[in-house]
């Protein structure tokens, strides 16, 4: 392999990226917008009221509830069939019917808000005041809020996207433009090209995580308690691992549409189960092997341990090892099956 060729390929790829403003937006703008929107959405200290619907037929029975001003419970009256429909559409958390003495509640037990609605409504039906019971304190200190959970997750997602589209998307585009096959009829070695290209994309994905972390700190006081060097190492390994995955995803597909299909197949489960937006520790037992097999899970956990828990390099070794192994396997398989034509 000739370093001069690897360098020239990398420089080409860097130039192409830096001259594409929309690529820069998707790397930097998108995660920041997401952080702001989700950060604000989840930062209100008061949770929203639960919503209850009463069919007109039962309106008279619960007249006393309707007259009271219930801070935690919002009640509306609808015609019977409309009430049923609104419940199934998720407009309401709970449907209350029957008589005052023998009320019956209809809920969808699979919906997270249902139990909360039931809790508040039962207290209301029993005539308990809202302030009764143990005193409640809201968690507001940095490091324990939702935004603190979210920022490391966004960093992980950012690296995943960079691997899938930065590496995978660009390679497929070069394939559809016949550029890959044009390059393979020169004395350029394929390994020189892939090394130059992937290293440029890894280099390009390094700054964004720090921009997101810096933004989290400035805008929401999200702490960075561990060493920034450990964060850097994690970022580097995460970028390498996801580049391998991107290479694998792009290794056979012939069209950009094909790539977005395969990339979504890889990304969607990770968005849902990778622990970026919500903790995946309490997902059902059957899903856990899948959760644990995802590189994003380990990367997110490691970021959180280092940023929020202040853990040192030592505790991140296992996730790093997992990232390296997944990355290596992807690279090796991708190189075997890679289609240059």
């Amino acid at each position: 392999m000739r370093p001069s060729v690897i360098k020239q390929v990398a420089v080409t790829s860097l130039r192409e990226y830096l001259r594409t403003p929309e690529a820069i937006f998707w790397t930097y703008g998108f995660p920041l917008v997401m952080a702001v929107v989700l950060g604000i959405a989840f930062s209100s200290s008061e949770p929203g009221a639960v919503r209850v619907v009463i069919p007109e037929t039962s309106q008279a029975a619960f007249a006393d509830l309707l007259e009271k001003d219930n801070g935690r419970v919002e009640i509306e009256v609808r015609p019977a069939d409309a009430a049923e429909r609104a419940l199934s559409m998720g407009e309401f958390d709970l449907l209350l019917q029957g008589s005052r003495e023998d009320p019956s509640l209809r809920i969808d037990p699979r919906r997270p808000g249902s139990e909360l609605a039931r809790f508040h409504l039962e207290r209301l039906l029993a005539g308990e005041s809202e302030t009764a019971g143990p005193r409640i304190e809201a968690v507001t200190e940095p490091g324990a809020r939702y935004i603190d959970f979210l920022i490391p997750g966004l960093v992980g997602l950012n690296l995943l996207g960079a691997g899938m589209f930065g590496v995978g998307g660009n390679l497929v585009q070069m394939r559809t433009r016949h550029l890959l096959r044009r390059l393979t009829v020169t004395p350029m070695r394929r390994s020189e090209f892939l090394l130059g290209f992937v290293s440029s994309r890894v280099l390009l994905s390094l700054p964004a995580p720090f921009v997101i972390i810096l933004f989290g700190w400035l805008a929401f006081d999200v702490p960075l308690r561990g060493s920034i060097l450990t964060v850097f190492l994690l970022t580097l390994l995460g970028a390498l691992s996801f580049s391998g995955l991107g290479l694998l995803v792009a290794s056979r597909v012939r069209t950009v549409e094909g790539l977005s299909g395969v990339a979504n197949m890889v990304m969607m489960p990770m968005w849902l189960l990778g622990g970026s937006f919500f903790s995946n520790e309490r997902f059902p037992e059957v899903l856990q092997p899948l959760v644990q097999a995802m590189p994003l899970t380990h990367l997110n956990d490691a970021y959180r341990d280092v940023m929020l828990g202040g853990e040192s390099l030592g505790s991140a070794l296992l996730p790093m090892l997992i990232l390296v192994v997944i990355g290596l396997i992807s690279f090796v398989v991708a190189l075997r099956i890679f289609r240059w034509k």
């Binding site: 020239q8 390929v9 130039r15 192409e16 433009r177 016949h178 550029l179 044009r182 020169t186 004395p187």
Partner: peptide, 22 residues
Amino acid sequence: LQETKFFEKLTVLELLELFASF
């Protein structure tokens, strides 16, 4: 080749530099 599109954002000179390096 019959239909090759090179890197859109690169200049003529930069593209030739790339191929020259091979």
